[in-house]
């Protein structure tokens, strides 16, 4: 898992509100550092890291929600949706790894139950990955990142 990027420019003696404008854009940038990898379904590690960065952004937005108007929570919901889809993809990746290891430990023995679950999980993973890409493209089309950054500065 990638380490969180160091937050810079804070002033602990300034208001919570003023520091929100400093911290939140940095958390958004951390998420978008992974964007270059997402169109390759095999980049498991990077997709996982994007999920972790999204989770960090979500928690940070929740801490700072008090500083913003009510519709700020709509943005948090969108972030949670992305986190959930990426979470499903990661769960499938872990399940596939566990099943492959388990099968490998038996070498030549037939394990039809494991084969069925591998096939099923691959299908689910592919569907979740497509759903994530579609959601990401939709958000890009409506300038979600710019909207987020504007609301943080508002």
């Amino acid at each position: 898992m990638a380490k969180p990027q160091k937050i810079t420019g804070l002033n602990p003696k300034q208001s919570f509100r003023e520091n929100a404008c400093i911290i939140l854009p940095q958390k958004v940038e951390e998420v978008y550092t992974w964007e270059q990898f997402i169109r390759d379904p095999a980049r498991r590690e990077e997709l996982h890291n994007m999920r972790i960065s999204i989770k960090r952004l979500r928690y940070t937005m929740e801490f700072f929600a008090i500083n913003y108007e009510k519709h700020f929570t709509e943005f948090i919901k969108t972030i949670i949706d992305l986190q959930d889809i990426l979470g499903d993809i990661h769960d499938s990746d872990v399940v596939l790894e566990v099943l492959a290891d388990y099968k490998g430990s038996f070498q030549s023995t037939e394990l039809p139950g494991v084969d069925t679950l591998i096939a099923r999980t691959r299908e689910t993973r592919n569907a979740d990955y497509q759903a994530f890409l579609e959601r990401w493209e939709q958000l890009s089309e409506v300038n979600f990142k710019q909207k987020l950054l504007s609301i943080f500065a508002s």
Partner: peptide, 24 residues
């Protein structure tokens, strides 16, 4: 997924340090 808890005694005008302590 668990939802965030409500943090008491934080406000936009308080210093970051005070709010950070409350949140942590």
């Amino acid at each position: 997924m668990s939802t965030a808890i409500e943090i008491k005694d934080i406000s936009p005008e308080k210093t970051l340090e005070t709010c950070a302590r409350q949140i942590i």
